[in-house]
């Protein structure tokens, strides 16, 4: 009888250890994927992003997104590929594209451009929110991506 009890208790203890281990491995600490700006304060926007990715044959993929759930506005999103050669001129616009959205939620632009070597590149996102009726700008926000070197 005692043997059975001891066996059962050891089984339970072993299973506890296993479950504890698996539970611990599930609770990983998340780190933000990127260096988010310190506490941006938006009025209507929920989030703005800017992404850049190096592609084959000298191309780069640029991404600009924004998220907003407020009605009666027009959203003008601009995705710009900026570059610098390290001179005092700083960041210069190399390629740019703009799109207008009326739809709520997250919207975005992705564009692939050829980016010659010898520069540092980044994506610069600009979102302008206008009142659909009056055309008046109610909010403007920007976001610049991490930099890639070519």
């Amino acid at each position: 009888m005692k043997k059975i009890l001891a066996f059962m208790l050891s089984l339970v203890m072993m299973s506890m250890c296993c479950i504890y281990a698996s539970a611990e491995s599930n609770t990983e600490t998340f780190e933000l994927m990127s260096d988010s700006e310190a506490s941006p304060r938006y009025t209507h926007l929920g989030a703005v992003s800017a992404g850049i990715k190096e592609k084959a044959l000298g191309f780069v993929l640029c991404e600009s997104t924004y998220a907003c759930m407020h009605e009666n506005y027009t959203f003008v999103l601009t995705c710009t590929l900026q570059r610098t050669d390290g001179s005092a001129a700083g960041w210069q616009t190399y390629k740019t594209t703009t799109e207008t959205f009326l739809e709520l939620g997250t919207n975005g632009i992705t564009e692939t451009w050829f980016a010659p070597a010898g520069y540092a590149y980044r994506t610069f996102t600009t979102i302008v929110i206008k009142n659909s009726r009056t055309g008046k700008v109610v909010e403007t926000a920007t976001c610049d991506s991490p930099v890639i070197y070519k």
């Binding site: 700006e37 929920g46 992003s49 800017a50």
Partner: peptide, 16 residues
């Protein structure tokens, strides 16, 4: 929306 990690991205959330 799912923002994937396969890109150098800055994701600014309204924190205030």
């Amino acid at each position: 929306t799912e923002h994937t990690q396969n890109v150098e991205k800055k994701f600014n959330l309204d924190k205030e």
